[in-house]
Amino acid sequence: MKNYQKINNLIGLTLFVVAACVYLLTMEPTVSFWDCGEFIAASYKLQVGHQPGAPLFLMIGKLFSLLAIGNTAKIAYWMNFSSVIFSAATVTFLYWSITMIASKVQKSGDTTLSNLSVFSAGIIGALAFTFSDTFWFSAVEAEVYSLSMLFTAIVFWAALKWERNLDNRWLVLIAFVIGLSIGVHLLSLLAIPAIVLIYYFKKTAKVTIPGILKAIGVAAVIWITVQYIVVQYLVLMAAKLDIFFVNTLGLAFGTGALSFILLTIAALSYGIHYSIKKKNY
């Protein structure tokens, strides 16, 4: 079949429209139960929600709340609408992930029948997920789970794209998206073991049980580092340094936190420069 990639992209976008229409027709018209009211209010006023705060979700929610054009009665509606868009996009990326996996079995591009099998697998899988109870439930209200699922879907899709062409820019994108997702929900961290195993299977000439166990161990170390050191202790260190600067050195409030941020940026910049200089990328 000619134009396989164009057809695959078109089907993915069509599924986006289908999912968006379904979710829009069943969307909550106003505030629903659970944390939705808190998220809507916090987004509208750009305040801090319950721990851990979901700052990125609240800022994006603020953008959608502006669509109310000053009508406060419609703020909840447009915040719920954001989940519709995020969830529909998740369905699209899921479809593309399924077709990439299915194409390994059917060898897409060989025959029309094999391509139809790949497309069918993607469509069935994506639509089954579209109408699944838990996902549909979070797709129609202002909750963090829809955007979190989108980030997770993008991360796994990007991992499959890397596995296909071994372009390390996909790994950079994965790290960036996981970093963004921390400002929404920590669900994307669960994709780290899968990404490490994909990397291991692709880069290792001979797969062994000890090698798989080592890869799982590396994944655990990465996950623990991000979960505890990056997410929790970096912020704590900034707070402690700020307290030291203010209470001990008598400097202005926020000086310590700003200094910590600048030191972190400097360390990351040096690491990037060193990596490029040594061609360790």
Results as ranks from 00 to 15, higher is better:
residue 172 V to Q: 05
residue 59 M to L: 14
residue 205 A to E: 11
residue 150 L to P: 07
residue 255 T to H: 05
residue 88 A to P: 03
residue 67 L to Q: 10
residue 6 K to I: 10
residue 199 Y to S: 02
residue 133 D to C: 09
residue 234 L to I: 09
residue 216 I to D: 11
residue 194 A to K: 00
residue 245 F to G: 01
residue 153 A to C: 10
residue 175 A to C: 07
residue 66 L to H: 12
residue 247 N to S: 08
residue 164 R to W: 09
residue 248 T to Y: 02
residue 253 F to K: 06
residue 240 K to V: 12
residue 175 A to H: 08
residue 162 W to T: 09
residue 184 V to P: 03
residue 279 K to I: 08
residue 57 F to A: 00
residue 17 V to F: 02
residue 168 N to M: 03
residue 126 A to G: 07
residue 256 G to E: 03
residue 215 A to P: 11
residue 237 M to E: 02
residue 279 K to F: 14
residue 96 W to A: 01
residue 98 I to R: 02
residue 67 L to D: 13
residue 261 I to W: 11
residue 124 I to S: 08
residue 45 K to T: 13
residue 36 C to M: 04
residue 164 R to D: 15
residue 66 L to S: 15
residue 223 W to G: 10
residue 59 M to V: 15
residue 33 F to T: 09
residue 173 L to W: 00
residue 208 T to L: 03
residue 51 Q to E: 14
residue 281 Y to L: 13
residue 200 Y to Q: 04
residue 78 W to G: 00
residue 45 K to P: 00
residue 176 F to Y: 01
residue 59 M to T: 14
residue 12 G to N: 06
residue 241 L to Y: 04
residue 34 W to L: 05
residue 153 A to T: 03
residue 73 A to E: 12
residue 132 S to Q: 13
residue 21 C to K: 07
residue 124 I to W: 05
residue 149 M to K: 05
residue 254 G to M: 12
residue 157 W to Q: 09
residue 263 L to T: 14
residue 262 L to I: 15
residue 139 A to S: 15
residue 101 I to N: 06
residue 186 L to M: 00
residue 280 N to Q: 14
residue 161 K to Y: 10
residue 97 S to F: 01
residue 7 I to H: 08
residue 151 F to T: 09
residue 43 S to M: 02
residue 102 A to I: 01
residue 110 D to H: 05
residue 33 F to E: 08
residue 62 K to M: 14
residue 16 F to W: 01
residue 172 V to H: 02
residue 232 Q to A: 11
residue 39 F to K: 07
residue 87 S to C: 05
residue 162 W to D: 07
residue 236 L to S: 10
residue 161 K to V: 13
residue 49 G to R: 04
residue 216 I to T: 15
residue 51 Q to C: 12
residue 102 A to V: 00
residue 195 I to W: 06
residue 228 Y to C: 04
residue 156 F to E: 04
residue 199 Y to H: 11
residue 275 S to R: 12
residue 272 I to M: 10
residue 260 F to V: 11
residue 127 L to Y: 08
residue 92 T to I: 02
residue 173 L to N: 00
residue 49 G to T: 08
residue 193 P to S: 04
residue 137 F to H: 15
residue 117 S to E: 11
residue 109 G to M: 05
residue 230 V to Q: 08
residue 279 K to P: 07
residue 158 A to T: 13
residue 191 A to K: 07
residue 73 A to R: 06
residue 183 G to P: 13
residue 204 T to R: 00
residue 128 A to D: 14
residue 24 L to G: 00
residue 216 I to L: 15
residue 251 L to I: 01
residue 49 G to P: 01
residue 50 H to Q: 11
residue 26 T to F: 03
residue 122 G to I: 05
residue 86 F to V: 07
residue 263 L to R: 12
residue 83 S to D: 01
residue 97 S to P: 06
residue 219 A to P: 11
residue 117 S to W: 07
